[in-house]
Design a protein around this nucleic acid. Structure first.
Length: 439
RNA sequence: CGGAGUGUGGCUCAGUCUGGUAGAGCACCGCGUUCGGGACGCGGGGGUCGCAGGUUCGAAUCCUGCCACUCCGACCA
């Protein structure tokens, strides 16, 4: 992409409403725009990051055996009456009425709808296990939306739903999602730790919140430091096999959010030098709730012995839009965002210090073409902006690499290459610079 | 929902107390000079002062109502 033809409304000053660093940086970097309290338009740069995050989540869900579909944002109220959650959900649910006076709601989650889909088609234990997921906008009418997309009212979420014949198989499905979550967040450059959680309105006994550690996180967390060194499974992890050892490694040490923190247990289970009090952001939550929905909604299958049994369910959410903010909270400096490569909106920023200079233009175009061919998605700053402004803008939007092309370097046959994450700027021939970027 | 605030050009804000021609910086447009870490000169465009009603000769400013947004608390991917 050429910056001169792109839509990137950067802000030099921080809008007054933004309190936390990710919100400020997202506004300043032209990633999003508030349209109403807790409701945001995703501008091109932000949209690219959102799609990268979504892509990683999708790959890991698919790898773990979940199957993608897409359910609508609007749901019939009657469906929620079946599970008795229509009234129970309260004012957080946005309710709307259509022209025929039918009651609808903007979905805050999809347990009812997926159960309805499941029961319509699945009749036999032979079809299990089954895990269906979608990535769709949700709406929860938060009392107080704040912190930008960190706590918006409309948000983008991946929600997966598992169906199994019995609790043991359900637990195995739960473990697959648990491992997939470890991989997701790891790939995004985040340190995420699963913590035992209350299940809240979703229900069930078994639940974990996945918390990203960030200094500016909104909730306090207490954990055993050794969890941070616990290995994350590689992409060759065998989802057909027994994953309980991995889950065990991640859940046997103490980790709790402040609302369920037990100081006595923390001190008994964790040596003093391994205790860590930190701050974190919840980016995902897993639930195993058994037959909570399948019984009232009559979602059952025929078991091997011929009897009808309600399916055992779980649900697994990842806050995709929140993750964008969480990644920034975890990875930024005074100059702006520092994107982990896997989610960066562009791979390399090419800064032309003298657009219009034949030599500089030639090197920029060559670098642009080669980086594009390499799949590194370059963003070429070919604007007539002052060099100082270009540097500040490129630092702000945080691309992993900066390739600086100026007349002095071109005269010497070199360009300058810099890693956004604290690297020194080095002069080297373009071909060599491309090799370094290629790794 | 309780408490506290704020709405003036795209952004940051002054002006409101004490009513009298709507301002500044940045951004934007034109010309010129510049050009290696947020340049400079000259010229220019852009605002029904959140909305409605009221008081007044006259309202951004005073009064009433409404709306939106922000912050603190209780709740959440």
């Amino acid at each position: 992409m050429r910056l001169s033809r792109y839509f990137l409304p950067l802000l030099r000053e921080t809008p007054a409403e933004a309190q936390i660093v990710s919100h400020r940086l997202m506004l300043r970097a032209g990633m999003m725009r508030q349209e109403a309290a807790g409701i945001y338009a995703w501008l091109p740069l932000g949209h690219r990051v959102l799609k990268k995050v979504e892509g990683i989540v999708r790959e890991e869900m698919d790898r773990a055996g979940a199957i993608e579909l897409l359910m609508p944002t609007l749901q019939l109220a009657d469906l929620w009456r079946e599970s008795n959650r229509y009234d129970a959900y309260g004012p957080e649910m946005l309710r709307v009425t259509d022209r025929h006076k039918r009651e609808l709601l903007y979905g805050p989650t999809n347990e009812e709808m997926i159960t309805e889909i499941f029961r319509a088609y699945v009749k036999s234990y032979r079809s299990l296990p089954l895990n269906l997921y979608h990535i769709q906008w949700k709406f929860r009418d938060e009392v107080r939306p704040r912190f930008g997309v960190m706590r918006g009212r409309e948000f983008y979420m991946k929600d997966a739903y598992s169906f199994d014949l019995d609790a043991e198989a359900g637990r195995a499905s739960y473990n697959r999602m648990f491992v997939a979550y470890l991989r997701c967040f790891h790939r995004m450059g985040l340190k995420a730790v699963p913590m035992k959680a209350e299940s809240g309105p979703i229900g069930g006994e078994l639940s974990h919140e996945f918390i990203v550690l960030a200094e500016t996180g909104e909730s306090g967390v207490f954990l055993d430091k050794r969890l941070l060194d616990t290995p994350v499974p590689g992409e060759d992890v065998d989802y057909q096999g027994d994953l309980s050892a991995i889950v065990e490694a991640w859940t046997s040490r103490y980790a709790a959010t402040e609302d369920v923190h037990d100081p006595g247990r923390f001190e008994r289970e964790t040596p003093a030098d391994q205790r860590l009090a930190a701050r974190g952001i919840e980016v995902g939550q897993t639930f195993f709730f058994g037959d909570k929905y399948s019984v009232p909604m009559k979602a059952s299958v025929t078991a091997p012995d011929g009897t009808e049994v309600p399916v055992q369910g779980g649900s697994y959410g990842v806050g995709v839009s929140r993750l964008v903010a969480a990644i920034i909270e975890a990875s930024h400096d005074d100059a702006g965002i520092v994107w982990p490569e896997a989610v960066a909106p562009f791979g390399v920023g090419i800064i032309s210090l003298r657009p219009g200079d034949a030599g500089v233009d030639g090197v920029c175009e060559e670098a642009y073409a080669k980086l594009t061919a390499m799949g590194r998605e370059p963003l070429l700053d070919d604007t007539a902006e002052r060099p100082g402004g270009k540097f500040a803008a490129m630092d702000l939007i945080g691309l992993p690499w900066q390739l600086i092309v100026g007349p002095k370097g071109v005269a010497d046959g070199v360009v300058e290459l810099k890693r956004r994450a604290g690297g020194e700027r080095q002069s080297l021939p373009l071909a060599r610079a491309l090799e370094v970027i290629a790794g």
